[in-house]
Amino acid sequence: MQLRHVSTNLRQSLRRNVSMHAAVIITLFVSLSLAGIGVLLSKQAALTTDVIGSELQITVTLCVPDEPDFPQCTSEVTPEQEATVLQTIRDNPEVAGTEVISKEQGLDNLRERGVIPDEQFEGSDPLITADVIPKAIRVTLKDPQDYDGVTSAVQDLDGVREITTAQELVGPVFEIIDYTRYAAWGAAGALVLAAVMLVANTIRLTALARRKEIEIMRLVGASRVFIVLPFLLEAVFTALVGVALAAGALAAFTRFAIIDGVAEVITGLPFIGWGDFLYTLAVIGILGPVLTVLPTLLLTRKYLRF
């Protein structure tokens, strides 16, 4: 295949439609950035849920010995007591599911929340070990407001240390995350629509500008791939520029808004980091080209009359 011919064509076409391509790139850049922020916020919500439980959940911690605040606990909860508590919870019609958090998991979660300095978990004789962490049962409710039934059924059972609802703690946090996330996704959706329509217009203009050339190509027997390739390369090119710009914006968001921003100000909650940024990058890296290549494939079929 004549690569030089294809690349010349691509260059010409990009130059011919500079303003259209710029419009596609800018729209893609903004929509992908917003979609990326939506993904990052989902990651944040999932991370928060993992560590402190979602608002749909209540946490029943079980007894550990020697805690003056909880006089009903005289010793570590026994397996029998634990089984009774678990069964009572599961029998309750308001309960959607349960998850047992072991002492080790509890230790990890506590450490991840970052409230207690790391030194207390480290060294040959750490201050905080899994032993002192209470075992817990995380209960997912069908309706987050309906926790009274479970609470009253469980609170007087032997081996129960404390019942906490995540509602007060995480409710506002989730509310903010959710609203921002939905706003980001809504705006991203509208802009994605605009981007796709711009891509469609660009293709129509290009097909019109090149119609004589394309007609001749068809008549002399150029393969379909050869005819469509410049359009596809244009689509991939604009998508990649859009993705690159969005990646920059999301990196800045992760760095300045999260890592150096809220994570510095709000302690007691874990925050997303560069790993989540890379995941988001992969998502928009796929989404961007799909948004331009898919309409190109569909519309070249339509406008080029194969």
Binding site: M1, K212, E215, I216, M217, L219, V220, G221, S223, I227
Partner: peptide, 28 residues
């Protein structure tokens, strides 16, 4: 199949040589 039309259908921005070469370029 070679095709010739009443209205010639030449690419106005390409030279004679380029117009003829075009048929070969696009068929690889």
């Amino acid at each position: 199949i070679g095709t010739v039309f009443q209205d010639f259908r030449l690419l106005q921005t390409k030279t004679v040589t380029e117009n003829v070469a075009f048929a070969m370029q696009v068929t690889g």
